[in-house]
């Protein structure tokens, strides 16, 4: 079970800044465990951001994104209470989603 996604969405004037923290190992396939065995590639590939049900950002990412990915996104014309939804899907088909209201 994936760790919960943390979302912090705050208004600055009419712009919303959304910070998203995803718990994920983002293994590059180049790291070794304590026994010297290579840890297999395991990383988030797709991230979708929706605002009030409408897709506003479609992201594709690689194993080059840091462990426990942290993103910031910005929306124009957002209001307090607007719903932000985040989905991710990784290379093993694991997925996670979360939603939060803009504060």
């Amino acid at each position: 079970m994936a760790e919960p996604i943390r979302i912090r969405a705050t208004l600055k004037g009419d712009m919303a800044e959304v910070r998203v923290l995803m718990g994920h190992p983002m293994e590059t396939g180049q790291r070794k465990d304590s026994d010297g065995k290579l840890l297999p590639l395991h990383f988030i590939q797709q991230v979708t951001v929706r605002l009030n049900g409408k897709t506003v950002i479609e992201g594709q990412i690689s194993q080059s994104v840091s462990r426990n990915p942290l993103f910031s996104f910005r929306f124009k014309g957002a209001r307090a209470g607007d719903k932000v939804e985040i989905d991710w899907l990784d290379n093993k088909g694991e997925k996670n989603r979360a939603e939060a209201a803009i504060a």
């Binding site: 409408k54 992201g59 194993q63 840091s66 942290l70 993103f71 910031s72 996104f73 910005r74």
Partner: peptide
């Protein structure tokens, strides 16, 4: 697609 500002912050290796 529409509605987001062309901005992103991301941590990379």
């Amino acid at each position: 697609p529409e509605g987001a500002l062309p901005y992103v912050r991301v941590n990379v290796k």
